[in-house]
């Protein structure tokens, strides 16, 4: 291997609790390259996304080729290379929710907060996502706000709840 240039952008702090979490997981998995996905899960849950320096750290510890790690991360939708935001608002656009007005909710979010599906606010406070179906069709239209399902919501209600979450009210 040639001496590294591009891979190491930033050194990780060893005292960072998130780094400690990943290190513990890797040790538990015995640094097996096969355990890559489990370790990436831990990292994704700790950071909310996968920063490049974390990927570099895992790559080095597991003795994996960088391209292999990158291809795994980009293949699965669960993993994200960009921050999804401190709070997440997941709007279900499955058939039932769509009929009950999921689009109106998305339009209202765009109008009031200036965020389209898949975007994250400039201050990294809120990320808006869509899902095809969350399996809660009886609660349509459903929105998941930080892992909490909001049932039968109106556009106005959801904007209020988001504002409470991100602390602008």
């Amino acid at each position: 291997m040639k001496s590294g240039t591009a891979v190491h952008t930033k050194e990780l702090s060893k005292t960072d609790p998130r780094v400690k979490l990943i290190a513990a997981k890797m040790k538990k998995e015995n640094y097996k390259p096969d355990a890559l996905i489990e370790i990436l899960h831990t990292a994704q849950n700790a950071y909310g996304y996968l920063p490049k320096e974390v990927l570099a750290y895992i790559t080095k510890a597991l003795h994996l080729p960088p391209s292999r790690v990158y291809s795994t991360v980009t293949f699965y939708h669960f993993f994200s290379l960009k921050s999804k935001g401190e709070h997440t608002c997941l709007v279900c656009t499955g058939t039932a929710c769509y009929v009950k007005g999921a689009q109106a909710i998305l339009n209202e979010i765009e109008k009031k907060l200036g965020l389209k599906a898949g975007q994250v606010s400039a201050d990294d406070k809120l990320g808006v996502q869509v899902a095809r179906c969350i399996g809660a069709c009886g609660l349509a239209p459903a929105v998941v706000l930080d892992d909490e399902v909001q049932a039968k919501v109106s556009p106005d209600e959801i904007i209020k709840k988001i504002n409470i979450k991100i602390g602008t009210v």
């Binding site: 040639k2 391209s67 990158y70």
Partner: peptide, 24 residues
Amino acid sequence: DVMNRGHQVRIISDFNTPWGESIT
């Protein structure tokens, strides 16, 4: 290696870094 899936797939070197900067 290969990144993404569907018609978005691309061949990548390292962390999708330019080939000339690859360490492998």
